[in-house]
């Protein structure tokens, strides 16, 4: 699209100033994090000392590295499972024949997005707890005698995170699928491709940009998840966010919390930034734009 460039720009300054102010505030907040990451921690005080690089070196300790590794592992698994579970729903959402089915699907699919992380996390505590929904169900069915420990495990955390991530993934995938020309799928069938082959050779390749960007978005998103590992992990599953919270609001080691925040920010931005050119190229290839 070309932008219209009029000689006069009505409202330009009046509309620009609030945005500049907001951007300034946000950059100042991030700048503070950056600044604190170079300061010396003074135990027992909220004030910080002089400049140092020591906080960055501290990340290298095995205990922090293992948290980092856990965070990445959980995020990768969450992104992959979210993709697998979301694709069929997104496909159904776009291709269901009846209007009411599509409406029902979209409402069921995106409602969890708006109930907030505390409500969703609490719901999973009820589902996964030792007296929770799953254990009661299994016990009543006579499949188990002692409750399974699902809470406070990586499994439980991942199960909850996948459910949180699905609405966003479904929206991204559904957008991608809705841009696939229906007649391309029909053409493939007309040329002799059975339904699964049509999916594999036409639908999936044409939605690949959505698949990749969706997976990376969920990966970055999960990297910064906090309440789920905090409550469902219960201190036994630690992700980077929990470490920031511990360091920042329990130990009041602001400098180290700042370093960890920056690290999370870099991983998130890095993973999203890295794929952008790749996605662009792929989108050009399948000619979405």
């Amino acid at each position: 699209m070309k932008h219209r460039v009029p000689r006069r720009r009505p409202f330009f300054l009046a509309f620009l100033l609030p945005s500049l102010l907001a951007a300034g505030l946000f950059l100042a907040a991030l700048g503070d994090v950056l600044q604190y990451s170079f300061r010396t921690f003074i135990p027992g005080s909220l004030d910080v000392g002089g400049f140092t690089l020591e906080n960055f070196l501290r990340i290298g300790r095995p205990i922090y590295l293992s948290v980092l590794l856990d965070t990445v592992t959980i995020s990768v698994l969450t992104a992959l499972f979210t993709l697998l579970l979301s694709y069929p729903v997104a496909y159904a959402l776009v291709r269901a024949r009846r209007d009411w089915v599509r409406t029902l699907l979209i409402i069921l699919a995106i409602t969890p997005l708006f109930t907030g992380e505390i409500v969703r996390t609490y719901a999973w505590i009820l589902v996964l707890g030792s007296n929770g929904f799953v254990n009661s169900l299994l016990k009543d069915a006579g499949l188990i005698t002692a409750p399974l420990s699902l809470l406070y495990t990586r499994f439980g955390v991942t199960v909850a995170l996948v459910q949180f991530s699905m609405p966003v993934m479904i929206i991204l995938l559904a957008t991608a699928i809705s841009h696939v020309d229906r007649n391309c799928e029909r053409a493939a069938a007309n040329l002799g491709a059975p339904p699964l082959m049509v999916f594999w050779r036409v639908t999936l390749p044409l939605t690949m940009p959505g698949v990749i960007s969706g997976t990376i978005v969920i990966f970055a998103w999960t990297m910064s998840a906090f309440s789920t590992p905090q409550l469902i992990g219960g201190g036994k599953v630690l992700m980077i966010s929990n470490l920031v919270y511990l360091q920042g609001l329990s130990t009041f080691n602001f400098p180290f919390a700042a370093v960890l925040s920056l690290l999370a920010l870099l991983v998130a931005m890095g993973s999203l930034g890295l794929i952008r050119p790749a996605i662009r190229r792929l989108e050009r290839r399948v000619a979405l734009h």
Binding site: F26, A29, L30, D32, V33, A220, M223, S224, F226, S241, V244, Y245, G248, A257, A258, S261, L262, A264, L265, A268, M269, L272
Partner: peptide, 10 residues
């Protein structure tokens, strides 16, 4: 994109 805890902490 910025993790909410980074924003909050900032």
């Amino acid at each position: 994109i910025v993790p909410h805890f980074t924003t909050g902490f900032g």
